[in-house]
Structure formats: structure tokens, C-alpha cells
Amino acid sequence: MKAVLRRIGPSGVLGGFLATVLIVFAVLGPWLAPYDPVALDLRARLGAPSAAHLLGADEFGRDILSRLIFGARVSITVATTTVALAMVIGVALGLTAGYLRGWTDRVIMILNDSALAFPGLLLALGIMAVVGASTTAMVIALGIAFAPAVVRVTRSSVLSLREREFVEASRVMGNAERTTMIRHVLPNCVGPLTVLATAMFGWVILAESALSFLGLGVPPPAPSWGNMLAAARPYIQEAPWLIILPGLCISAALLGANLLGDALRDLLDPRMQS
């Protein structure tokens, strides 16, 4: 344990701490939150932080602390599933394109580049406009929108790795192309992919906020950090904490994810050991 701590360093420890706090809130939310996140209390409307409402209340008098805690749950679920989806699509396409090259590569990359040229959020908007706003639709839309970046990163790692002699050694050994890809090429892409995945975790939370802001995100009254931010906009003068607090939560989550990503990359690389 001590060795692990030393290897990931102080920033890794901070990242791990932030991520742990976030996960604890997400999992234990219902037991930790002092109020029901959707319970109205019009007397407390736009109330400043007080003993009854530790972090204040919003325009319907709903408790901010409770909403932030439940929001963590929604935001993390959305971010994790979206990143996972983008990774699966992106790695599969990137690996195929980079390893097979030739026509497969050309076709995949032309499609991918056109997807990249199209703003991700706009693509998501289009998809959601067709299938309607729901959390699942948003995850699928964002997953597709973020996949092209993963395809690019995977393909470029694969292209440089496939020329390495250990990959050739695997071919000479008699391993099937698929075995070579899975056993030798993919594990060596893990470094750049971990970093991309954690950075993407942050982008997804932001994208979710943006979509919520446009009314296409997590449908109200369910709380997410994004739609809380969106809903707080009219009250920025009277009750600034409404916008500051979810903003802080998003920043902390992003910071945690990025620091943890860098630490994970080092931890997973045998060359960084010893």
C-alpha cells in the first residue's frame, strides 16, 4: 500500500480522494441526504445557507445539499456509462482500422473524420431531437459523439505499435492476427487511452450540463449537476450559491478524474515500477 502511494504521488492521492468522496456520495446518497431532493418547501424558496438548509435552497425551496448528493449519482452514472460506451465503440473501430489498414482503414477513417468535423454536442442534439430527451438517449448520443476521438487515439497508437518488433515476433510465432492484437497491441495502448478516458469523463459532465441547459439533458425534476446549473441561471444575482455550488462540484469531479487518470496510467505501466 505504501509503495503504491509513493508511486502515484501527492496528486494521485488527491485524485483518489476526490474520486472516493464522489463515489461514496453517489452510492450512499439516499442515506446521507438530509432531505428528499424533489420535496418542495416554498417557504425556504431561494434561502441562503442556514441551519435547516446547510447549502441553501433553490427556487422551489428544494434542499441544495440533497440535490447535489443525488446529482452526483446521476452525473457519475451518466459520465461512466458514456465514457464506457465511447471507449468500446472507439477502441473496436480504432484497433480494426489501425491493424488491418488498407480499405478498412480508409472507410473507417473517412466516416470518423466526418463525425469529428461535426461538433459533438450538435450531433448529440440531433440524435436527441429524434429520439427525445431521456437519460438513456443522452448516454447513447454522447457516447457516439465522443467515440471518434477514441478511434483517432487508438488508431495512432496501434499504427506505431504494429511496426514494433515484438508484434512481428508474435506473428512469426504463429499467433493469429486477433490474438496478436488483443495480447500485444491493445495492452500497450492502455496508457494514452486511460488519460483520454479520464479527460473525457470531465467533458461528458460538461456536455451533460450543456444539454441540460438546453432542456435536453436529464429531465427535471430529477437532479443532475448540469440541470441544477441550468436552472440556477435566472437567479444568479439573488442566490449565487445556486450556480456556484454545482459548479464547484463539477470542477472537483473533473480535477479528481484527471489526477486519478494520470496516476492510473503510471500505476498500470510496468516500466514505472521499481
Binding site: 518488433e165 515484438f166 512481428e168 515476433a169 512469426v172 500497450n188 510496468p270
Partner: peptide, 22 residues
């Protein structure tokens, strides 16, 4: 051919890139 594969092997020049680092 799988049988031929068994029988033909190669040792590469650069031992730094011929072994999978992981």
C-alpha cells in the same frame, strides 16, 4: 503454415523493441 511456423524463428536486432514491455 502452422507446422512451418514452428520451425522458422527470428531473433531481432533491437532487444529493446522486440520484447513486449507489458
Amino acid at each position: 503454415d502452422p507446422d512451418t511456423r514452428r520451425d522458422l524463428q527470428i531473433i531481432f536486432q533491437d532487444p529493446y523493441s522486440s520484447l513486449d514491455p507489458r
